[in-house]
Amino acid sequence: MSGAFFFGYGSLVNRGTHHFTPLHPATAHGWRRAWRCTDAREAAFLTAVPDPDGTLLGMIAHVPADDWAALDEREAAYDRLGAGLKITHEAPGVAELALYAIAPERMRGPSDAHPLLLSYLDVVVQGYLLEYGVEGAEHFFATTDGWDCPILDDRAAPRYPRAQRLGDPERAVVDRHLARLGSRRIAA
């Protein structure tokens, strides 16, 4: 294995959504998350946006077979950024590290026609709960912008392709934070 790794700050944190190994906790400095849309997808999804005072908890994973082209294809809605990243971690052998983010000129805010999928949010929060505990989930909500976007309640019939089953306590964490933030749910 070589030293090519990438930083994940959303669904990658949930080990149940992928087969990337090894996976190590990491922190990206100078970033926040935001819910955004592009023409590449119907639903809103997470991106990293520059924030000089921001930090994101996440995970770094090895690029399978060091094949950046295949990973770029999987992450086609994003641009791969590598230069100037400040990501702290304790993973051995990391020679190259990238982060994927939507190019600013391609992103726009979510809308009723392009909402956030609750099944996607559930996956992300479950990952933070499993990797970082309740404090990690709270950090996720605090370091993510765009909670005023519409949230499509698709829990009963998930539209997110890597949806996971959440237990009642995990769903309660998501629901409590959405209520606190005044987020608007729309029926599927």
Results as ranks from 00 to 15, higher is better:
residue 147 W to E: 12
residue 151 I to C: 01
residue 133 G to N: 09
residue 126 Q to W: 00
residue 170 E to F: 01
residue 155 R to S: 05
residue 129 L to T: 06
residue 155 R to A: 06
residue 158 P to V: 00
residue 130 L to Q: 15
residue 171 R to G: 03
residue 145 D to W: 08
residue 173 V to F: 07
residue 148 D to G: 15
residue 138 E to L: 15
residue 157 A to P: 00
residue 150 P to L: 03
residue 146 G to Q: 08
residue 174 V to F: 12
residue 158 P to D: 02
residue 146 G to K: 12
residue 158 P to H: 01
residue 156 A to P: 01
residue 168 D to H: 03
residue 128 Y to P: 12
residue 147 W to D: 11
residue 140 F to G: 05
residue 140 F to N: 09
residue 174 V to P: 10
residue 161 P to C: 01
residue 159 R to E: 07
residue 138 E to Y: 09
residue 171 R to F: 08
residue 157 A to I: 04
residue 144 T to P: 07
residue 157 A to E: 14
residue 146 G to D: 08
residue 168 D to R: 11
residue 151 I to D: 02
residue 162 R to S: 09
residue 161 P to V: 08
residue 141 F to W: 14
residue 155 R to T: 09
residue 165 R to M: 06
residue 136 G to E: 06
residue 167 G to Y: 02
residue 167 G to N: 09
residue 141 F to A: 11
residue 141 F to Q: 13
residue 147 W to P: 09
residue 144 T to L: 10
residue 140 F to Q: 07
residue 158 P to I: 02
residue 152 L to E: 06
residue 158 P to C: 00
residue 137 A to K: 05
residue 168 D to V: 13
residue 166 L to A: 13
residue 146 G to V: 12
residue 146 G to R: 07
residue 150 P to T: 08
residue 127 G to M: 04
residue 139 H to G: 03
residue 165 R to Y: 01
residue 136 G to P: 12
residue 165 R to E: 14
residue 127 G to Y: 02
residue 174 V to G: 07
residue 155 R to W: 01
residue 126 Q to K: 15
residue 154 D to A: 07
residue 151 I to M: 04
residue 137 A to G: 09
residue 128 Y to C: 06
residue 147 W to F: 15
residue 158 P to G: 03
residue 148 D to R: 05
residue 164 Q to T: 15
residue 146 G to I: 09
residue 131 E to A: 14
residue 154 D to G: 07
residue 159 R to W: 02
residue 134 V to C: 00
residue 135 E to S: 15
residue 162 R to T: 03
residue 175 D to E: 15
residue 133 G to W: 11
residue 174 V to A: 08
residue 133 G to K: 10
residue 132 Y to H: 15
residue 147 W to I: 12
residue 133 G to Y: 10
residue 151 I to A: 00
residue 128 Y to D: 04
residue 173 V to R: 10
residue 159 R to T: 02
residue 169 P to I: 00
residue 130 L to Y: 03
residue 155 R to C: 03
residue 143 T to Q: 15
residue 149 C to W: 02
residue 135 E to I: 05
residue 157 A to C: 08
residue 175 D to F: 11
residue 140 F to V: 05
residue 161 P to W: 00
residue 125 V to L: 03
residue 141 F to D: 14
residue 162 R to M: 11
residue 165 R to W: 01
residue 158 P to F: 02
residue 158 P to S: 04
residue 126 Q to C: 06
residue 155 R to E: 00
residue 169 P to Q: 03
residue 132 Y to T: 09
residue 129 L to W: 06
